[in-house]
Design a binder for these strands. Sequence first.
DNA 1: TGCACGCTTGAATGAACGCTCATATGAGGG
DNA 2: CCCTCATATGAGCGTTCATTCAAGCGTGCA
Lengths: 116, 116
Amino acid sequence: MTDDLFQMSETFEDSLSEMKGRMPSDAGLLKMADMFKILSDPTRVRILYALSLSQLCVQDISELAQVSQSAVSHQLRILRNSGLVNWKKSGKQVFYSLDSDAVRTLIEKASEHSLT
Amino acid sequence: MTDDLFQMSETFEDSLSEMKGRMPSDAGLLKMADMFKILSDPTRVRILYALSLSQLCVQDISELAQVSQSAVSHQLRILRNSGLVNWKKSGKQVFYSLDSDAVRTLIEKASEHSLT
DNA sequence: TGCACGCTTGAATGAACGCTCATATGAGGG
DNA sequence: CCCTCATATGAGCGTTCATTCAAGCGTGCA
C-alpha cells in the first residue's frame, strides 16, 4: 500500500500487520506443503488408492498402479518415511497397507473434490 | 503373484483384476494429483492462506507471503489458471480473492490434518 | 550350497519447477 | 506527453524429482 492516502493507509496497514500475525508459521506451512507434495504425484496417488482397497505386496501394487516394480519401491520409501503406509515382511514378500483411516478419508475427500 | 500356488493364486488374481476395475481413471488421477500439486508449494499455500483472510492486492500478498512481487505474480498466474482465485482490476491495482469457500475449507482441512 | 525370487538402493538422466532479473504493459497524476 | 506506480511476462538458472538401469541383499527351496 502506498502512503499517500492517510486515512485508508492506516486502516489497511493495521489489518495487514494483524494478518501477518495470523499467518501460520513457516514450519507449519512447510509441513502442510509437504503433505500435499506427497499426494501431488499420480503414481503415489495410484499406490495409495490401491492400498485403500486392500493390503498388497509390492508386485501387486506395481501391477495395479501400472508402474515398474523399481519405481514403486522408490515411491513406497517416500510413503513409508512420511508415515502414510505400514509394511510387514512375510517371507520374500513385503506387504504394504495404509497407515490409518485418516489417509483413506483424505484420499476420498480429495477425489470428491477434484473429480467433479 | 506367482503361479505356483493354485488355490490362492486364483483368488488373489481374481481380486486383483477386480481391483483393477476399481482403480480410478488416469484422467481422474492426474486431475487429483494436479490439484494437490498446486497446494504442494509453500509460497502458494502462503498466498492462499493470506487470501483466506481477506481479499488482497498483489503488493499486500507479496508482503504477507514474504515473497518478491514477481514471484507472487508468477504463482498467482498458476492459481488463476487453476481456478482457485478470482481477480478484479481496480485502477492500477489488481485484487485477488479465493474463488470459493471450497478452497478455504480444503486449506483448513489440510492444516488440521498436517499440523497435528 | 547354490540359485531364483521379491524387494531395495544408488547413480544417471531428463523433465518440471520456482525464483530472479530484466523488460513490457497499462493506468493515473503532474 | 512523460513519468511513476502496480502488475505481468519471458528468459535464464539452479534445484528438485520421478523414472530407469544395474547392482545388492535376504529369503526359501532344490
